[in-house]
Simulated scan of single mutants.
Amino acid sequence: MTEQPHHDQLREAFETHEDTNIDPAAVYARVQELSTKYKRRRRGAQIAAGGVLSAGLVAGAINLPAFLPANQPVTNTAAGVPAGAPAKPSAAPSNGPTDYDRNLEAYTEAGYGYDNAGVLARLWKMNGDDRLAVKAEAGRRLLLGETLPIKPSPDAPVEEETISPEQDKQFQAFFNAGYTWTEAEKLAKIWKIKDPADAKLEAGKRLLAGEELPVKPTKENVAAALENKRASAFWEAGYEAEDAAKLAKLWNLKDTWSAKVEAGMRLLAGQELPIKP
Rank of each mutant, 00 (worst) to 15 (best):
D198R: 07
N221M: 08
P93C: 07
L34A: 12
A188T: 10
T2V: 05
G118I: 04
A117C: 07
W257S: 05
A269C: 03
G118V: 08
R11V: 08
F175N: 02
F171L: 10
I275S: 00
E272D: 14
G128N: 14
L10N: 12
L144M: 11
S164C: 04
Q271M: 10
P97G: 00
P154I: 09
L148V: 12
K192Q: 15
R131P: 04
A66Q: 13
F67W: 13
S232G: 15
D99W: 09
A184I: 10
P165V: 02
V31L: 05
L213W: 04
Y179R: 02
Q72R: 08
N21W: 11
L207Q: 07
V261L: 01
T77G: 15
A70D: 09
A79P: 12
G51Q: 08
D195S: 15
W257D: 05
V261M: 00
G210F: 10
K229N: 01
L226P: 00
E220C: 00
M126F: 08
G113T: 05
Q271E: 15
S35Y: 04
D23W: 00
Q167N: 13
G264F: 05
V31S: 05
E183R: 03
K189I: 06
A106L: 08
E15L: 08
A110T: 03
A121F: 07
E3D: 12
P165T: 06
M1V: 14
T256V: 04
L273M: 09
E161A: 06
D155Q: 08
A70V: 06
P97R: 11
A55T: 06
Q46G: 03
P214S: 13
G204R: 06
G60F: 04
T162D: 15
Y38T: 07
P165R: 08
I193T: 02
L267S: 01
A136V: 02
Q46N: 14
N127P: 00
A87K: 08
K39W: 14
A197Y: 07
E161C: 00
E33V: 11
A79G: 15
E137P: 01
A83G: 11
W124C: 07
L267P: 03
A85L: 08
A87L: 10
E185Y: 04
E262Y: 10
